[in-house]
């Protein structure tokens, strides 16, 4: 059950880290709807914000869908904070 490689032509322009972070931030607020928005920074981990394992999967999946980027599941497992997720999304969007 591998994820298919996305056709690179599906992204019209390369995404900036800021754009990716904004998408991730919006999804964190969607999944953890009572979290204080000011706590959502690059250096925080989802676990610190009160996310359980399935919340973390949701944030990643919604972000991948929104950005039309696929990150293989094994790479996601190593993510420790939002910066790590943003970097992976950026790396896989190229």
């Amino acid at each position: 059950m591998g994820l298919h490689k996305i056709n690179p032509e599906s992204n019209a322009m390369p995404l900036s880290l800021e754009q990716i972070f904004e998408t991730v931030r919006a999804n964190v607020q969607k999944v953890l709807f009572d979290v204080d928005p000011s706590l959502i920074t690059m250096d925080v981990s989802l676990t610190d914000l009160g996310a359980n394992s399935i919340d973390r999967v949701e944030v990643a999946m919604y972000s991948m869908e929104d950005l039309k980027v696929n990150v293989p599941r094994q790479q996601l497992a190593a993510v420790e904070n939002l910066r790590g997720l943003v970097d992976l999304l950026h790396k896989n969007s190229a």
Binding site: M1, L3, H4, I54, V57, E58, M61, Y62
Partner: peptide, 8 residues
């Protein structure tokens, strides 16, 4: 959209 489902 193969692989895309509700995460829950």
């Amino acid at each position: 959209n193969s692989g895309s489902i509700n995460p829950r």
